[in-house]
């Protein structure tokens, strides 16, 4: 076995042991990740074609407006969503990939 393979194997073994040692928090974090992925996909699907406001997104995906705003703010920070103008008093958001095309 090459040196790199040995290193990768020992690294993966170490992570496995750590996951066992932190089983409770890892399980909670995995649940959080699943919920976040689902929310992210729902939002992105809705703002792919046309930019939308937070209340429009919230109504479409059936989530509270403050939760949607938090996700939009997080996605904006990491460059996944951009602000593309205003609709009345509300900013419009679109998925970054489509907005930049």
């Amino acid at each position: 076995m090459s040196e790199l393979k040995v290193e990768a194997k020992s690294r993966s073994e170490m992570l496995k042991q750590l996951r066992e040692a932190h089983a409770v928090t890892v399980e909670q974090a995995q649940g959080l990740l699943r919920a976040q992925k689902q929310m992210h996909q729902s939002i992105c699907k809705f703002i792919r074609e046309n930019p939308k406001t937070v209340p429009e997104i919230a109504a479409a995906i059936g989530k509270p407006t403050h939760e949607v705003l938090w996700f939009i703010a997080a996605s904006k920070k990491y460059g996944l969503v951009v602000e593309v103008g205003m609709c009345g008093d509300y900013p419009l958001y679109q998925r970054a990939k489509e907005a930049q095309e």
């Binding site: 705003l69 703010a73 904006k76 509300y90």
Partner: peptide
């Protein structure tokens, strides 16, 4: 800041 502008945290409206 979190929104890059002043918005209200309940629904993202620009407050007047």
């Amino acid at each position: 800041g979190p929104y890059g502008r002043v918005l209200r945290p309940g629904d993202g409206k620009e407050p007047t």
